[in-house]
Design a protein around this nucleic acid. Structure first.
Lengths: 254, 254
DNA sequence: AAGTGGTCTAGACCACCAT
DNA sequence: TGGTGGTCTAGACCACTTA
């Protein structure tokens, strides 16, 4: 069930990323070949090359300057990603941490089925509809980094699996995996809000830091392709060890 | 000197935004016309329509579903923007706040020329090269929201204006304006890092909140089109009244 | 099967930057 | 002036959803 018919754009992206990783453009001072040349080299149209470069630019890998050329963003290699990858990609923290070379572990604290209650609004269900709540801590090198509570409507699980909900959800290292493996649902997009809060006593215990330390709170709702809420998440990141990174561009023209 | 030759894509974007604001697609339940129909309606190619829709999707205004259609993201109208606009656009806070209907005011605290010191690394200048430091507070409805310190290399200012640096910089409501008006430099992109910190005593005073409250810290460096650092900024947002919003999409395919 | 968005092409012209 | 990225077109086919 691993349908693949990899679009040219993505192949081009992978080629370019590999070239950059290999330091292919170092001797040219970070200058990539022109779009026309890349098109020829990869035997694709210039539009396809441009599509690939646009996506690479959107994630900050590359910088384009009209009339000049395309350059690799050397800042990124000098300053290894904060949580940029997670930030832009929308997938589990565990995967994000892995892809930045850390070695995360998941500590499952709780997996229960209970009434939606306060999160019913976000999930667009009734307050007493059952949701699967999973609480976990993600550590790296033995130190806790992230505390995460996710709530998924029980109804997403096929009826025959609902009795095993706790077992199944508790066995997954991320909600993304759970949805993928057991609910046959994929996350289409996610809406998050980022705030700064203080660690309360409970959270301080869990994150192994003092109470009243600053931490980043990320509240998010994931939606399926048909815009149904898939899960609600409330995550806290240790303020001293985690930060997000973002690249922005002005679009307005004078 | 207001060159304009507005690209079709941007015109299409503006038309669509206006339509959405006007509630044009409400009766159709948020469904936009198909790309082909929009192309015909605006008398542009489908590629141009797709470009416009892609950019609207990237900022979360619209959601596209293959095989189904394009929809306005009704979540956004229900929950008015946090600081999403600033977050994605890279321009001054003041503009961002204005565009979300608030009425920000700028309180200039300090404008001085001094050695770069600690920020010399970020600005790629020598530690004793002079920079213009501007410290200000942005308030809305009388309450302070943001404390901001920006450092710009003095060398960006044309030599004849350097003696007036303090006066000029102190008179601008945002560093973007200052760069635009007096340095003939534009921001090409910005790299920011977001952390959670505590308000120290000084910051608490300035933001009119208690010390040891959580707040969001955004540290950023802006680069010109030729990748020269334009300014370094260290900003603090009151944790209780400001949050960022972000929309993410997974790109990996199973 | 019909209709939607997603990918891809080949070619054109423009705006910008260097020289 | 020549080369770069930015915009735009018209047309083709594919992948996906819905009925």
């Amino acid at each position: 069930m691993v349908r693949r018919n990899v679009p040219l754009v993505e192949q081009v992206i992978l080629e370019l990323l590999a070239d950059i990783d290999r330091g292919e453009f170092v001797r040219s001072n970070g200058v990539l070949p022109s779009e026309a040349e890349l098109a020829q080299r990869f035997s694709v149209s210039r539009a396809t090359v441009r599509d690939a470069l646009s996506r690479l630019e959107a994630t900050g890998v590359v910088i384009r300057r009209q009339g000049v050329g395309t350059f690799v963003n050397q800042f990124l290699s000098k300053h290894p990603a904060a949580l940029q990858d997670w930030f832009e990609e929308a997938h589990g923290f565990v995967d994000a941490l892995r892809s930045m070379g850390r070695n995360p572990e998941v500590l499952m604290l709780r997996a229960v089925v209970e009434p939606a209650g306060e999160v019913s609004d976000h999930l667009q269900v009734a307050p007493d509809d059952p949701v699967i709540v999973v609480e976990k801590i993600i550590t790296s090198a033995g130190a806790p980094l992230i505390h995460s509570v996710n709530a998924t409507p029980l109804s997403l699980l096929p009826p025959e699996n609902q009795p095993r909900a706790v077992e199944l959800a508790g066995g997954c290292e991320s909600t993304f995996r759970f949805l993928d493996d057991y609910c046959r649902s994929r996350v289409h997009h996610q809406q998050s809000e980022i705030r700064a809060v203080l660690t309360g006593e409970k959270l301080a215990l869990l994150l192994a830091c003092r109470a009243s330390e600053p931490c980043l709170q990320v509240e998010e709702v994931a939606y399926s392709v048909d815009l149904a809420p898939l899960f609600y998440g409330l995550n806290h990141f240790r303020g001293d060890t985690v930060s997000f990174r973002q690249i922005r561009r002005p679009s307005a023209r004078g």
